[in-house]
């Protein structure tokens, strides 16, 4: 088993390296559930602090409705993968764990995709390839690796909910700003006066980059002041 044990050492070494963020390290020691949940929303918010999952963040935030759908899909996938990984964490072979994570995530994403196609066909059409692309979203594999494969079921569930909520809230805020400026509506309800001229650029990719940049800057300023 020379080969096997070699992998064993190597992969645990990798595990340590993967815990790059302060928030992540804190989490596995401190098991306070409330803290775990709120870490996902602010301290280690996947989009604003860890800069994970940028692809859906930029691509589906032209309006609140698709952003919310995307956020909830990610919550479901995260929950599913964290539960399965957490339950199987003692059976996982360290050098095959990524395969196991991918298999779990792919299953969850396929379920979400089928569900949207069956029950929300219009949303599914407008989100296009971005639902299947959740498979390669780093947030999910990151949480499986950093939290679920080391913690019990309850912690993993709370972590999934917190991270998912953080992701969803961020996407919705970004989408709300862009939707108001690009169309004058929020959640397809008109909020701006009739004389408002829509800023079409905010609905385009350039709007996503600029708005995300400004939000990231604002969050950095706030967290520097409160730290």
């Amino acid at each position: 088993m020379v080969l096997g044990s070699g992998f064993y050492v190597l992969s645990f070494h990798e595990n340590d390296k993967l815990n790059i963020s302060k928030g992540l390290n804190k989490m596995s020691k401190d098991v306070s559930l409330g803290k775990t949940f709120f870490a996902g929303i602010w301290d280690s918010n996947p989009v604003l602090r860890l800069l994970l999952g940028m692809c859906p963040t930029l691509a589906v935030t032209a309006a609140v409705k698709p952003a919310l759908t995307m956020g909830l899909s990610v919550v479901f996938v995260l929950l599913f993968s964290n539960i399965v990984v957490s339950l199987l964490r003692h059976q996982l072979k360290p050098h095959l764990r990524i395969l196991m994570f991918t298999l779990t995530i792919a299953t969850a994403v396929t379920i979400a995709d089928l569900y949207l196609k069956a029950f929300m066909p219009e949303m599914s059409a407008s989100l296009g390839p971005y639902i299947p692309l959740i498979i390669v979203n780093c947030i999910i594999i990151g949480r499986a690796e950093a939290c679920a494969s080391k913690n019990g079921l309850i912690v993993s569930i709370i972590d999934a909910l917190g991270m998912g909520a953080g992701f969803t809230i961020t996407l919705c805020v970004l989408a709300a700003i862009r939707e108001v400026l690009a169309t004058g509506n929020i959640f397809e309800i008109t909020v701006m006066p009739g004389s408002f001229t829509p800023w079409a650029a905010m609905g385009m990719p350039v709007g996503a980059f600029i708005t995300l940049g400004l939000i990231l800057g604002a969050v950095n300023i706030i967290s520097k002041k409160t730290a």
Partner: peptide, 10 residues
Amino acid sequence: AFLTASFGML
């Protein structure tokens, strides 16, 4: 460029 992308007609 931003204005052109936003308010092409104007």
